[in-house]
Design a protein around this nucleic acid. Structure first.
Lengths: 213, 213
DNA sequence: CCGTGTGAATAAATTCACAGCA
DNA sequence: TGCTGTGAATTTATTCACACGG
């Protein structure tokens, strides 16, 4: 159960979980691999392989019981304890994320929004006040921050990764468009909007990109 | 040259391109696979494999000449023509993206920001006015939109994918936390913030997630 | 010699196909 | 009969190791 799960599988588990939660609220009790796979944009075979890595929780001829499956997925993702999130960088993106419903949905709570610019510190964002990034280390300790989201300009990212990591945060999600390095044991994931756009540009066919009227 | 490039390779090419552009502006003329790989967070071997899929552009004992390599990567990504982007959904995230520097940087131009809510239509966001999503089809045609970015609530996403695709847009980047289907020939990529957070939650170690004071 | 180019080996992920249980 | 569980086959991606040119 504590085997190493492939990253591809984990990404899908996150999607499975979302569908399961929706259906559970609608009173659905059971799903088949076909239905759940479709909702997550994958194939039944892949789904069954994924779920089997977590043990056998389905019943042949019936499907999976949502009530028992959901906690298994949550445990696999490490959502058993709530995560305490600090958003560093209160620009457009940081503000957008601080109000992002997905945070509060399940297992994540924003406990601080920080910025280094004096003009921004003290302003309101969603339900929080923006605080001074100079107090980062103190805030991390006082509030038990376990996850940092960096929405800062590229040049500032590495220094903040260092500070955040030194303060004891082991999980970082960075939106800065630069590669950063982190000490051992600290996980940094990147979301790169440029890369996503460029990937689409390619998929539309290399050399294309315009439409003729 | 027009072979099908692996997605993993394309994502990395996007990163290579960013580093190359930076260095080119600093006057650097040549890079080795080691240096470029490090900047992109990968290994020299992988990088060389990637670049070889685009043909041989390096010189043994020297490295890669940035001036010749950059356009090769841009062509591979389909960045030869500018992309005309419509952002659909002027909530927090949509507004953040409309001001996102990465858009304007290379090959992407935001030509419209749309929203369905009367309260939002007409307001300013960055350098644009938010327009009525009801006019989506007209705007797509008039302005030659080639890429749509959806920052709308989950329940609205599928309908908008349908409309945008029907209007002739073949590339869609969706931030909505739902799987959507699209007609053949239309590419939909998703960025899912919840998934990214949950992935981090797992990496920190299943069952962890709190810190003891 | 340095650093690319590349075949071969390895590892990872997906798909297939079907046996087996409710 | 329906749908899961799973070994085997396949495809995809990464890593290794070294020959070769400048």
């Amino acid at each position: 159960m504590s085997k190493h799960l492939p990253e591809a599988t984990l990404r899908r588990i996150s999607l499975y979980l979302r569908s399961l939660s929706e259906w559970e609220q609608e009173g659905v009790q059971t799903v088949s691999s076909t239905r759940l796979a479709e909702a997550a944009g994958t194939t039944p075979a892949t789904l069954r392989k994924d779920l089997n890595l977590l043990g056998s929780h389905g019943r042949r001829g019936v499907g999976y019981k949502i009530e028992t499956l959901r906690p298994v997925l949550e445990t696999a993702l490490g959502l058993t304890q709530p995560w305490r999130v600090a958003i560093v960088g209160a620009g457009h993106l940081g503000r957008a994320l601080s109000g992002y419903a997905g945070f509060t949905t399940r297992g994540f709570e924003v406990v601080a929004v920080l910025d280094a610019s004096p003009e921004v510190v003290g302003t309101q964002t969603g339900e929080r006040l923006v605080e001074d990034a100079a107090a980062l280390e103190d805030i991390v300790k006082e509030r038990g921050v376990t996850l940092a989201v960096l929405t800062v300009p590229g040049p500032a990212a590495q220094a903040l990764v260092d500070r955040v990591a030194a303060a004891g945060v082991a999980s970082i999600l960075s939106f800065a468009p630069v590669a950063v390095s982190a000490p051992p044991g600290v996980h940094v994931n990147r979301v790169d909007l440029s890369t996503e756009l460029q990937l689409l540009a390619h998929q539309a066919g290399p050399g294309l990109g315009e439409r003729r009227a």
